[in-house]
Design a protein around this nucleic acid. Structure first.
Length: 424
RNA sequence: GGAGAGAUGCCAGAGCGGUCGAAUGGGACGGUCUCGAAAACCGUUGUACGGGCAACUGUACCGAGGGUUCGAAUCCCUCUCUCUCCGCCA
């Protein structure tokens, strides 16, 4: 959530930024926030003044009682009898303004960074980098959903039977390939300086609010209503929330964490022909990198995270492109996002395999994640995260691009993890 | 699941209903001493929201939310969580 102080002090810049997302009425929305904040302040001032008076009176009554002047004390007591009611009203009013302001702020997305292009959707994203040759497959090349059947490595029917659509069962070499990729990604991340974390994969409501999945994207998560817990849609949620309500010391920074978790997404209403096979699942595996940075370092960190993700794709020998997302295609919380897409040669489609974002202070403000700098001043940190990487579409790319008449070639870098170099 | 105990500042741990933002100890930080270090001694050590150029200042916060009271860390109610013992169990 945006800081009110930012909205107040940089009204024009905030409005201009939000306009890049295609947000209508940005000015009205911002002015509403300013107004609510103003009302909040006014009311608080009144309540504080009244409380200051009451405190002083109560103190005097105490002193009078002590010195045995009960009469005088009783007189004072009747004199301030009405204040309580007034105060109660003011406090109720204050609570209403605070709640309204909070709810209003929840609905305002993050302000895109200066470099982010304006735009309404995927067509306005900027292709900033492309790497690797597009494979030329023979005419009888198969999409991955055929290949997994041919080699019996991933089974949707079995998953369907025990769970439902979108919950595949990985079998034999298919299962081993998953395990190999997870290990490979974690080992690479550790080499790059990340600390491995293995968090719970269910989180409470507060965590959902902390990283911004709640209240808006409630329908995206599986909700365990009996215990009011949520299955995580990404490791970002538990790992970033580890730092909720914290004031870090300067020497705790930067924080570089990596975690593997299964991810669960309801994906309600988003099924169709283009999401066949592994393209979209309810449960999938992902390794996520999370950084917490001082504000002045966060964009350099974003570049480093992208470079790291790109290095993984290059080691796996997958052709990819890097997109700078436009305002309209970015996530609600993000200030700047790069997507990495792998070319799946049989489908002839680019598949998003990673999304690397800088949230600046947007999440930190909700999380109350701050640090104390050298001067002893406390300020919000920047949070960042990125997939490194999401497994299913990586697998789709490997299967489709590496198919040969003998079988599917395992990328050389993975062979020491899988123990085989051909799926046949 | 049953029984009991508890939740206070970075940590440990006090706290007769009024002067408690909160004793004391530890830690951390700064200083004195020292060639340097240890020890010892002295000092500092909150967060949020307001007001003020600032020094400073108002309010709130002792798990959360209500209540009693002129006044609550302290009394009452509800909730949450933690710990111990028993049961069950990977």
């Amino acid at each position: 959530m945006l800081q009110v102080s930012l909205i107040r002090e940089q009204r024009e810049a905030v409005i201009a930024g939000l306009a890049k997302r295609g947000l209508k009425d940005a000015a009205a929305i911002i002015d509403k926030a300013v107004e609510l904040d103003h009302l909040r302040k006014q009311t608080q001032q009144k309540a504080d003044d009244l409380k200051a008076r009451s405190n002083a009176e109560a103190k005097r009554i105490g002193e009078l009682m002590k010195s045995g002047n009960a009469e005088e004390a009783a007189k004072l007591r009747t004199a301030i009898a009405g204040d309580k009611e007034i105060l109660k009203k003011l406090e109720e009013e204050l609570a209403v303004y605070e709640e309204q302001l909070k709810q209003h702020l929840y609905k305002i997305p993050n302000v895109p960074a200066a470099r982010v292009p304006a735009g309404g959707g995927p067509d306005d994203n900027l292709n900033v980098h492309q790497h690797g040759a597009i494979p030329k497959l023979p005419g009888d090349a198969l999409p991955h959903w055929e290949l997994i059947k041919k080699y019996d490595i991933i089974d949707f029917e079995l998953g369907n039977k025990i769970s439902g659509a979108g919950f595949p069962v990985y079998k034999g070499k298919g299962a081993k390939l998953q395990r190999a990729l997870i290990s490979f990604f974690l080992d690479e991340a550790e080499k790059a300086g990340y600390r491995e974390m293995m968090p719970p994969i269910v989180v409470n409501e507060a965590s959902g609010y902390g990283t911004g999945q709640l209240p808006d994207k409630e329908g995206q998560m599986y909700h365990i209503t009996l215990d009011n817990l949520y299955l995580i849609p990404t490791a970002e949620v538990p790992i970033t929330n580890l730092y909720r309500d914290m004031i870090l010391n300067e020497n705790d920074l930067p924080v570089l964490n990596v975690g593997y978790t299964p991810c669960f997404r309801r994906e309600a209403g988003s099924w169709g022909a283009h999401v066949r096979g592994l393209n979209r699942l309810h449960q999938f595996d992902k390794v996520e990198i999370v950084q917490i940075r001082k504000p002045e370092e966060s964009y350099q960190a974003l570049d480093e995270m992208c470079a790291y993700v790109q290095s993984l794709l290059e080691k796996l020998e997958l052709p990819y492109r890097k997109l700078l997302l436009c305002g309209g295609d970015m996530g609600f919380n993000s200030a700047m996002t790069f997507d990495m897409e792998v070319f799946a040669a049989a489908q002839q489609r680019w598949l998003e395999v990673s999304s690397v974002s800088n949230f600046e202070t947007y999440q930190a403000n909700r999380l109350k994640l701050r640090y104390k700098n050298k001067e002893g001043k406390i300020q919000l940190l920047h949070t960042l995260n990125g997939s490194a990487l999401a497994l299913p579409r990586i697998v789709a790319g490997i299967l489709e691009n590496n198919q040969t008449s003998e079988g599917i070639k395992v990328p050389p870098v993975l062979v020491s993890y899988t123990g085989f170099d051909l799926i046949n």
